[in-house]
């Protein structure tokens, strides 16, 4: 197993390399630079130029890239212009909120979607199934910000149960931590749930057609037992894959939700850095996101081997 994991990690390297080149090129092509943004509207061209020199923005493309690659391989991701801290630190600080948010959103999605999907599959064509279709279409079409607007109006402004925005880390207490995360996680989670419910349903339906379901029926297993003990576990593989994929996407940061709820996560970091042209951070975030994505996929693959004994590590 260790060998397998190592191999997967090594296979990640070419991916990251390709990405780094793409990112670097794109950034190089984008007009505008952080010096002007930092110094603002009334700054004189000389001041801007001096800052650009200091930031090393005037070097030609290849030396810049090589310098950056060299540093990255040593674990030195550089420093952020605007955050006055190493990129490493910026990433670490923004990882926590996004991770918590993604985890909570995914949990909400699973809790809503899997039972709904299972029920809809076992009661095909009935109310539960129709409800699922309705819900999943709702979740997919309603834009996140509209949903968040309503939930904020209800829970924060009217009922005053939850804060409107902001973030408190885990060290401030679990309840507080969750209070700040629940509304954004809900906005994200419901959308995820819509997709997940459909996948669950279709995966369950496929498994319901398998022969061993008849065997279980012939053994006298109840409907409940068939659905939960027999079918669900077999249907898990595609479900797990979707969960992994969506979790990875969430780690890239749900930028819009984070900006509405003011959560200092990866998405916000990325968008702000792009707007400010904070190059080192942009590159750091992209690499990190790719890395996280690969790791999540790896975790999902490992989980799949537990769930389905036929799946072997190759």
């Amino acid at each position: 197993m260790a060998f397998y994991i190592t191999r997967r990690l090594l296979a990640m390297i070419p991916v990251l390399f390709v990405l780094s080149v793409i990112v670097f090129l794109i950034i190089y092509l984008i007009p505008g630079d952080p010096a002007a943004v930092m110094l603002g509207d009334g700054a004189s061209p000389e001041t801007i130029e001096a800052l650009r020199e200091q930031m090393g923005l005037n070097l030609p493309l290849l030396p810049q890239y090589l310098r950056w690659i060299g540093h990255t391989l040593q674990g030195e991701l550089g420093d952020s212009f605007f955050m006055r801290q190493p990129v490493r630190t910026a990433l670490a600080e923004h990882l926590g909120p996004t991770f918590s948010l993604a985890l909570l959103a995914e949990l909400i999605a699973i809790v809503i979607a899997v039972p709904l999907g299972v029920r809809a599959a076992s009661r095909r064509g009935e109310l539960a199934d129709k409800a699922l279709t309705g819900f999943s279409l709702f979740g997919i079409t309603v834009p996140g910000f509209v949903l968040s607007m309503f939930t904020v109006l209800l829970f924060s402004v009217q009922l005053k149960w939850l804060p409107v925005s902001g973030y408190k880390p885990l060290s401030d207490g679990l309840i507080t931590h969750l209070k700040y995360l629940i509304l954004p996680a809900l906005s994200l989670g419901i959308v995820q749930a819509a997709l997940l419910a459909r996948v669950t349903r279709s995966s369950m339906l496929e498994v319901l057609n398998e022969g061993f379901v008849k065997t279980a029926l012939a053994k006298g297993v109840s409907e409940q037992g068939i659905v939960y003990r027999h079918v669900l576990r077999n249907a898990l593989l595609p479900i797990l894959t979707v969960i992994g994929g969506s979790f990875g996407a969430l780690l890239a940061g749900a930028a819009v939700i984070e900006s509405i709820f003011n959560i200092p996560g990866m998405g916000q970091l990325l968008v702000n850095s792009v707007q400010r042209r904070d190059y080192a951070v942009i590159q750091g975030v992209i690499l990190f996101v790719a890395f996280a994505y690969v790791m999540v996929n790896l975790a999902v693959d490992l989980l799949c081997t537990i769930v389905d004994p036929r799946v072997r590590l190759k």
């Binding site: 092509l29 007009p31 990875g248 990325l270 792009v274 942009i282």
Partner: peptide, 23 residues
């Protein structure tokens, strides 16, 4: 597939912002 994986992991938001700004 390596290239596809790389692209898959690339956040759509950034790609869009970057492309719109660059092109």
């Amino acid at each position: 597939m390596r290239v596809m994986d790389g692209l898959f992991a690339f956040p759509a938001v950034l790609l869009a912002i970057a492309m719109m700004a660059a092109l």
